[in-house]
Design a protein around this nucleic acid. Sequence first.
DNA 1: GCTTGACTTCATGTCGACATGAAGTCACAT
DNA 2: ATGTGACTTCATGTCGACATGAAGTCAAGC
Lengths: 141, 141
Amino acid sequence: MKSSPGATWSVGELASRFDLATHVLRHWEDVGLLKPDRDSAGRRRYGRDELVRVAVILRNKAAGMSLEQIAILLDAGAPDRHRVLEAHLADLDRRMQEMQLSRQMTEHALRCRAHDVANCPNFRTGIEDLLEGRSWPGDWH
Amino acid sequence: MKSSPGATWSVGELASRFDLATHVLRHWEDVGLLKPDRDSAGRRRYGRDELVRVAVILRNKAAGMSLEQIAILLDAGAPDRHRVLEAHLADLDRRMQEMQLSRQMTEHALRCRAHDVANCPNFRTGIEDLLEGRSWPGDWH
DNA sequence: GCTTGACTTCATGTCGACATGAAGTCACAT
DNA sequence: ATGTGACTTCATGTCGACATGAAGTCAAGC
């Protein structure tokens, strides 16, 4: 009952399914994100599980996570998993909030009559609040 | 009426105000984000405008924008400025949505009894929807 | 039997945004 | 006059996530 009927895919098949290059899948394997079975000839055989993992990787990469972070997500054996996951949530929230601020800024730049961002009074006021109360965001990268 | 009383700062002063290294400010100048005045001795003098620009840069960097993108934001002279700004908004929205999906995924991983993400049935179902309807996100980077 | 696809290791390149350091000049303040 | 901070150019390194290619092996399908 562990693995269902169990269709499997080769690197090439899986790669084209997700529109990736094969060496990307091998790279992810190199860094420990995937551990596909091998057939009698030593070729990679990816099952449903690996397919799901690839989907998870893509989703979280798209959300700006590093492979290292994703590794923790996927590693069920991590001791402080719970803590790490919550930290990740907090991280996501923080980043979304910063993007929200950037969004407001850009939206204002669109509506504002003053074409030069640096010369719009409303805009400056908003920013200068930030300059007094020094609440500067950490590096997002 | 253009520039108010006009306090100015040196590189060092501005850098420490924003907790940056001086070479970062010079780097941003190299790539065209800043154009500070010079004093009689050729030293950079940053005014209120530049200070605002630095704040804008930091905000948007924190939101994941590249310096190149920020340059467009700050360049009032760009012809297709309006289009670019709206594209940026759309980009932000798309990314926030992807982060939202990642968030849901992570939250589920926290609550779910199945510790291994790849083996949680609910989770898999959600993902496999994505596998059928091929709606894959572009590179975020 | 030959192509196709997969395998291996190893090395090197790319991109963005700096980081770091050398090497030398210049101006202002104590 | 000495130290401090600023200036310049030029070169090289760092990090993450691959990209690209070489060089050689191996196995299955037509």
